[in-house]
Design a protein around this nucleic acid. Sequence first.
DNA 1: TATGAATGAGGGTTCATTCAT
DNA 2: CATGAATGAACCCTCATTCAT
Lengths: 204, 204, 204, 204
Amino acid sequence: MAISMKKVDLNKKQKRDALLNTAFELFTTQGINKTTINNIVDAAGVAKGTFYLYFKDKYDIRNKLIAHKASHIFSIADAALARTDLTDLEDRIIFLADNIIGQFNDDKSLLTFISKNLSWGIFKNELISSNDDSDVDFYNIYKILEHSPKAFKDPEILLFMIVELVSSTCYSTILYNEPADIEHFKPYLFDAIRQLIRSQEVMA
Amino acid sequence: MAISMKKVDLNKKQKRDALLNTAFELFTTQGINKTTINNIVDAAGVAKGTFYLYFKDKYDIRNKLIAHKASHIFSIADAALARTDLTDLEDRIIFLADNIIGQFNDDKSLLTFISKNLSWGIFKNELISSNDDSDVDFYNIYKILEHSPKAFKDPEILLFMIVELVSSTCYSTILYNEPADIEHFKPYLFDAIRQLIRSQEVMA
Amino acid sequence: MAISMKKVDLNKKQKRDALLNTAFELFTTQGINKTTINNIVDAAGVAKGTFYLYFKDKYDIRNKLIAHKASHIFSIADAALARTDLTDLEDRIIFLADNIIGQFNDDKSLLTFISKNLSWGIFKNELISSNDDSDVDFYNIYKILEHSPKAFKDPEILLFMIVELVSSTCYSTILYNEPADIEHFKPYLFDAIRQLIRSQEVMA
Amino acid sequence: MAISMKKVDLNKKQKRDALLNTAFELFTTQGINKTTINNIVDAAGVAKGTFYLYFKDKYDIRNKLIAHKASHIFSIADAALARTDLTDLEDRIIFLADNIIGQFNDDKSLLTFISKNLSWGIFKNELISSNDDSDVDFYNIYKILEHSPKAFKDPEILLFMIVELVSSTCYSTILYNEPADIEHFKPYLFDAIRQLIRSQEVMA
DNA sequence: TATGAATGAGGGTTCATTCAT
DNA sequence: CATGAATGAACCCTCATTCAT
């Protein structure tokens, strides 16, 4: 970040980052339960005690990773949306969903990690309090609905249902091709999303 | 059930049931990871070795519990439906959803247990193969869609989306009242379900 | 044995024999430490409790097997010797050694089992007390030396050295081909045995 | 040994040695099967986990002990031989055998441990690869035969037979006085060894 | 005799956490 | 800040043995 950073500080950040990256790698490949602190520090190349300088325990590092990764996904989708000239609300939401689905499809371990651990509560938390880690703003997505020319009965509930529908159906279709593979399923999903939006539209 | 059950077999069933009930109790209150075999056998009042006479390990008993409990929930909903005189397809599905939501709302630990562990894959399995434990037939719900006078583009995908939408939104609304409590959320959900059904209807 | 044996008694003998045969099979293929009572009774097709009707524990059945098997080996060698017309003492001893080596070579698991468990003490015991199981008489071999026209300084010590030399070198050469395979080693061994015998001969 | 050994490393060596010594003590008094890791760490005064820092399991520590102890025995015999002025080959071999028998006689638990576990394979291994533990060279004994002015048909086979004859007869005579006590048996044994050597001598 | 469900002590092993260096 | 040796509680699981049937 800063242009000049002392070597010692760099090492500090490097150690922490090494632990985060390694932990993510292990969590996604072996699962959280089967990953031990030993595994993490060995793979990260730091001493065991060092882990406890930066994180309280395994679940602390997991929570920090979830926030970080989820934030990253949304920021990528958001940036991609900005590069389009879509104006219609439905189109913009579908675009975001499609982009996120694409990211999950490209990185299935990421999907496993996120969907097993991300709840609307955490999502909401992130929406409000952006901590030091997540430089990205979920709020952007939220604003799309709120500042739309169209009005909705309850924008948050609408967003909630869309997010839950997308994330839970993604899990099954992408990872297990059940009840259909993702490409076959997409038209049904996007259709459903458009119906959800329309059903909550309030005529001006 | 059996016309005559020997004393020994009765005793066996009691032991097995004690283990199942205790395990469910502990899984739902403490979580599966934090529940140990020791905890289970202690609470069930049997010896440690006895556990291994009936179950391979902790995950074996968990799987048997999921199938058993999920089957039970559906059978209750199904029975309740049978006692109504609802004929309209949408109404019948909403009724089932409402009943299941009610069960989850009444027993929140059941909701935690089921939703953290039940995937569409397991659900589907149960739909097809009803083992000795689950005397109930998930298939009933499925048949409602298939044998409806109305035709649907893809009944399984429709059912899939409904189940996922209901179960994932239930989790957040019932347990955390986020983004709204379940009573406030229900109208939106039922509305959404009706929209989903209609959007997949194929005109005869 | 007896021509008429009641069915019940036959069953009794069958159960005991089944346990003995199964135990031997398992001991030689998996080792004694890794063989459990469970393994034995399962493979033998009897109930667990039945084991304890016939044997005190795993080591009891092992000891009975050793005596039985060792006795069997000697009786085979002895019978084969009787069918020859060898008269020279050295020749007769070499013949016995060769025959026993042959048996071990044909059944390597037998070799492992015997040599890991047979000590001169047990051997000696068997030589003296022939229990109900071993209908065969080790004493035959002993008598060869004692009743030879030649005299020896100490026939028992001579026999002892021959038996120990044969059995301990067999183990390494047959099972591991170390320091040479058995066929290559035999001439050296037989030569050595002849030297041992001659060195203890007392001139009349 | 090392010029300067850090306090930490010294401590490590002490822990490891404590485990080795305790394990040997228990293995020889109670047998390997009846010795548990618990026994070892309790007697050694270290925590259970510490055991696993240094050894993989019970059999790992056993193997390291065998190599260590066997090596030690030979080095003592070898050193004693060096202090004599024996030149004759037969005399030198008898001296070594006698010395080793003496060591076994003085420490019967050592004899039990070694003879139950040492095979020609392990012996040979040690002859070739001297690992960090065993600073001693079995090879010395081997060289006695190879570099003798006399020639032998096959020095390795000769050595093999001598070693097997000595070790297997020792076991019975020292521990059980069967078929005679060691002092009574020795003349026969040494005589037999001399015969073996002579029988393989090749005249120049 | 024969059974096999039930027992529970005790086995090996793991691993989060601490703390002296 | 960083280390990693040491800890020991707690884990899962086995299996010889018993005993009511």
